[in-house]
């Protein structure tokens, strides 16, 4: 047996597999957005002065980060019906991914906010800016910049973790690769193509992440304080990212 190159390329342009790529993509996007929104909520609870709410958030994070996504998915799809709670395949996958992702996001969001100096909030308070606006326009944008790197890792991990949804028969790339493999027995060719798809998606995300980093660090150029005619030096350092 050898590696059948033409079969491999055939899988790269296989409509059935490409359909799976789309499913993987939207599962990831929905997981990120849902996870981020839920994560922000959990982070807010975690930072709230109420012991009850903070305790709940702490438990939530501990629980969903401490158990495998695979178990969460199986329990939601095949376990909960035992208790009379039924979700469809895609619903189950989304719920599992969002629950799991939000636990990670909550910690990322919280760390981002904790890193903002108290002076930022105080300066805004002193100007009479209401609290909700301080979060929206002062602390969140600054925290977001700090969140981009850990968020990037998390999204990358989520992208690959969507493959676990194949276990509950969501037809994303992994599941459809399995199906093709069982049909044609070209194990290497099929999974090599699947790997290429994942690589393409993670690379695409890398580009997005790099764009976000540039976009949000524009303001944070740490130029040497201007002394006399320091302008050219400043201009040259404008693209540099503060570390």
């Amino acid at each position: 047996m050898t590696f059948d190159i033409s079969a491999f390329f055939g899988y790269l342009f296989n409509d059935f597999l490409l359909g799976g790529v789309l499913t993987t993509l939207w599962l990831t996007v929905a997981g990120v957005i849902g996870g981020l929104l839920a994560g922000m909520l959990i982070a807010m609870l975690r930072m709230s002065p109420s012991r009850l709410l903070a305790g709940f958030a702490r438990f939530y994070i501990w629980f969903f980060r401490g158990t495998p996504l695979l178990i969460q998915l199986v329990v939601i799809y095949t376990g909960l019906p035992q208790l009379g709670v039924k979700f469809g395949v895609l619903e189950s996958a989304l719920i599992g991914l969002i629950l799991n992702e939000s636990a990670y996001m909550a910690e990322i969001v919280r760390n981002g906010f904790l890193a903002i100096p108290e002076g930022q909030r105080e300066a805004a308070w002193a100007l009479g800016v209401p609290r909700w606006l301080i979060v929206l326009r002062i602390t969140l944008p600054q925290a977001f910049r700090l969140m981009i790197a850990p968020l990037g890792n998390s999204v990358n991990a989520l992208l690959k973790a969507t493959s676990l949804a194949s276990v509950i028969s969501v037809e994303e790339v992994m599941r459809r690769s399995d199906m093709l493999m069982q049909e044609h027995f070209q194990v290497l060719e099929v999974y090599a193509a699947a790997a290429v798809f994942y690589l393409a998606l993670t690379s695409l995300w890398d580009l997005v992440q790099r764009w976000l980093e540039r976009r949000f660090s524009r303001a944070h150029v740490r130029a040497t304080p201007e002394v006399g005619a320091g302008a050219p030096v400043l201009a040259a350092s404008l693209g540099r990212v503060e570390r």
């Binding site: 300066a123 009479g128 209401p130 600054q142």
Partner: peptide, 20 residues
């Protein structure tokens, strides 16, 4: 908030908003 809007404050550490 209304009273604070009428009181300016300048801090030792400037506390400018770095993203603006």
């Amino acid at each position: 908030d209304r009273i604070r809007a009428d009181i300016g404050m300048v801090f030792q550490q400037f506390n400018l908003f770095p993203h603006m």
